[in-house]
Amino acid sequence: MSALAVATSKLAMPNGEFSSGTHALRIFDRVPSGHDVVPLCGMVAVSHPKWLEMVEGGFYVVETQHPPGGMVWQTYDEHVQRYDMDGGPRTLLKTSRRVIRAVRREATGDAWWFIHESGFADGPIKAWAVGHNVVGEVVGIYRP
């Protein structure tokens, strides 16, 4: 089994296909200008921030923000309000990016499901809400 197949096995489509939507993932020996990288199952996925619309089976990079571990949102909000007045730190938010596979399931109509490398799925996510977290489309794997 190829390294790409191993890295994406939990994100694979039911038929075992590893292409990203309408195109095959490329192997890069250097990261092209204007592209980003994000970890994927011990490898490095290369993503492009310009994508027009999500396609069935495509790999995408989603970004989330959250307070530090153990801090509830209410405590975070109080911290921000206190330091905004003092001119202190603006945010303690942690930002993380991860690769997901976008799929649709018949029962949910136009909603999307995000399949994570762990095999778990988030969804259904309405089409209008998809763009809030997606920051790029995966176009290949970086392998120097």
Rank of each mutant, 00 (worst) to 15 (best):
S2I: 03
A5T: 10
A5P: 00
A7Y: 02
T8F: 12
K10T: 11
L11N: 00
P14K: 05
G16S: 06
S19T: 15
S20V: 09
S20W: 01
S20H: 01
G21T: 04
T22I: 13
H23R: 15
R26P: 01
F28Q: 05
R30L: 09
S33V: 10
D36P: 01
D36W: 08
V37F: 02
V38K: 06
P39Y: 06
L40Q: 01
M43G: 09
M43A: 15
V46Y: 03
S47L: 05
S47M: 04
S47H: 00
H48N: 12
P49G: 07
L52S: 10
M54E: 03
M54I: 15
V55S: 10
E56Y: 10
Y60D: 02
T64Q: 13
T64N: 10
Q65L: 04
H66G: 08
P68M: 06
P68W: 03
G69W: 05
G70V: 07
W73E: 13
Q74R: 13
Y76S: 05
D77Q: 12
H79I: 13
V80H: 06
V80G: 01
V80A: 05
V80Y: 01
Q81H: 11
Q81Y: 09
M85G: 07
M85V: 15
D86N: 11
D86G: 08
G87S: 04
G87K: 03
G88Y: 12
R90N: 08
R90I: 11
L92I: 08
L93N: 10
L93A: 07
L93T: 05
L93Q: 06
K94P: 00
T95A: 09
T95F: 07
T95R: 14
S96R: 13
S96A: 13
S96P: 00
R97T: 09
V99T: 08
V99N: 01
R104E: 00
R104V: 02
R104D: 01
E106S: 12
T108D: 14
T108G: 03
T108K: 05
G109H: 11
G109R: 14
D110T: 11
D110M: 08
D110V: 08
E117A: 12
S118Q: 02
S118F: 01
D122T: 14
G123H: 06
P124T: 08
I125T: 08
I125M: 06
K126Y: 11
K126V: 12
K126D: 12
A127D: 14
A127G: 05
W128N: 09
W128F: 10
W128G: 10
A129Q: 15
A129H: 15
V130T: 13
V130E: 03
G131Y: 12
H132N: 14
H132A: 12
V135A: 04
V135M: 09
G136P: 03
E137H: 09
E137W: 05
E137Q: 14
V138S: 02
V138F: 02
I141H: 01
R143H: 14
R143K: 15
P144F: 08
P144K: 13
